[in-house]
Nucleic acid binder design. Structure first.
Lengths: 196, 196
DNA sequence: TTTTGAAGTTAACAAAAGATAATTAATGAT
DNA sequence: ATCATTAATTATCTTTTGTTAACTTCAAAA
C-alpha cells in the first residue's frame, strides 16, 4: 500500500527517484512523533539517523563547560535534520535536538540511505542538492558574522525567518546570533526607539 | 603525454577515477600562475571556474558599502578554491580572490567538470567528499562564532592555522574573526600579558 | 641610504556587550 | 483564579569593542 504523504516528502529529497529506490526509501522511512521538550537526538548519540520534519519545531543545543545551554540551530517544517557531528564528523553528537513544539518527522537510517544512494546516480544528484542547501545556509550565516553587527544580524534574521521569531523564546535567537539574551533585549529596544 | 603532477592533484579530488574520465579531467585542467596581488577571480565574475591551489596563498575579500575591504577567507596549498556565489548561489561573485603570494593552481571549468561528474558515480562520491569538507570548515567556523569569545576564537585560529599566521597581515585575520584590526591587536597584547 | 607607505600598536573616547541581580510580564500547572 | 516558573526587560557596573587619530616599525622603492 502506498503512503502518499511519504512520497510527497521523499519527492523533495529526490526528484528523480526511480520506482524501485523510491520503494526502498519509503519502506525504510518511519513516521515518528515527539512531544514538546522531548529529544529527537541526545548528546553522545552515535546512531546515524536523518529526519525530515513535517510538523513542529526543533532546536539543537549544546551544554557548555560553563554549565549553560547554547542553542546553535533551529529546524522547522520541511527541513532535513541530522547531527552533523555524527554524519559529517563521525563522532558522538555534542548537541541535543529538542522538540520545541509537538513535532512529526520521517526517520531514515542514514547508513541504509547512503547504501541506496551509492547505487543510484540520480539520488546522488539529490544528495548533492541537500549538501548544497546546508552549505548555503552555513555560508549565509558565516557572512552575517563577518559582515554585520549583532543588530544588523538580528534584523536580517527577522527578515529571513519571520515565522520562527514568534514561535521560539528570544534567548534561543540570541544564542543563534552569538550574543546574550540581555544584549538582544537591548538591541530590540534600540530598534524600536530608532523607528520613532 | 601524461603530466604526473596533474594526476597527483586530481587524485585528491577523485580517488576512484577511471582512466577515461581521468584523461578528460587532466586535459581540461590548465596550469595557471598568479603573481602577488593579482586576482584569480574578480568581483562581478560569473564564469564557473574551480582552482586547485598547488602553491601560494589566496584571500577572498569583499568591498563593503562603507568602502572598506573585508577578508572572508584564506586559501592555502592543496585547497579547492571557487567563488561560492557563482557555484552555489548562481550569481556574480561578490568577492575578489587575490593572490597574497605568487600562486600556482590548476584551473578547471566547472560546467565541464559537472558534466563529467554527472556521468560517473565514483566521481559523485568524490564531489560529495569535497562538499563535506567545505561544509565541515563552515560548521567549525560557525561554532566558533556562537560558542567562543573573539579572544578564544583567535587562539583557536592560531592553533588550527599555525602556518597561515605568519604569512598574512593581522588585519586579514581580524576580518576572518569578525573583529577590527585594532581589537585584534589589543587581544594579542592581552594574551601576552596574561601569560606572564 | 633615504624616503615613502603600509601595517601594527597605542591612546582616548564613545558605544556596545557581558555579567549579575532585581523587577516585570507571561505561561503553565494546580 | 491562584500560584509557581520561566522568559523578558531593566538597571548597574565592568569589560570589551569600535572609531579615529597619532605614533612606531618595518620593508620596499627610489
Amino acid at each position: 500500500m502506498i503512503d502518499f504523504e511519504k512520497i510527497k516528502i521523499l519527492y523533495q529529497f529526490g526528484k528523480n527517484l526511480n520506482s524501485n529506490d523510491l520503494k526502498v526509501l519509503i519502506n525504510s522511512a518511519k513516521k515518528v512523533s515527539f512531544s514538546t521538550n522531548e529529544n529527537l537526538i541526545n548528546e553522545g548519540e552515535t546512531k546515524k539517523e536523518i529526519y525530515f520534519i513535517t510538523k513542529g519545531l526543533v532546536r539543537a543545543y549544546i551544554n557548555t563547560e560553563k554549565g549553560d545551554e547554547i542553542t546553535s540551530e533551529i529546524y522547522q517544517e520541511n527541513k532535513v535534520l541530522a547531527s552533523k557531528d555524527i554524519i559529517l564528523f563521525n563522532r558522538p553528537s555534542r548537541f541535543n535536538f529538542e522538540a520545541l513544539e509537538d513535532t512529526q518527522a520521517y526517520f531514515i537510517d542514514f547508513s541504509l540511505m547512503e547504501q541506496i544512494i551509492s547505487n543510484n546516480i540520480k539520488l546522488q544528484e539529490s544528495r548533492k542538492q541537500i549538501y548544497q542547501n546546508i552549505l548555503k545556509d552555513s555560508l549565509f550565516r558565516l557572512d552575517s558574522f563577518i559582515l554585520l553587527t549583532p543588530e544588523e544580524r538580528y534584523l536580517e534574521f527577522v527578515k529571513e525567518n519571520p515565522n520562527i521569531i514568534n514561535r521560539v523564546p528570544n534567548k534561543y535567537i540570541a544564542n543563534l546570533l552569538g550574543i546574550t539574551p540581555v544584549s538582544l533585549s537591548r538591541i530590540r529596544k534600540r530598534i524600536v526607539t530608532k523607528k520613532k
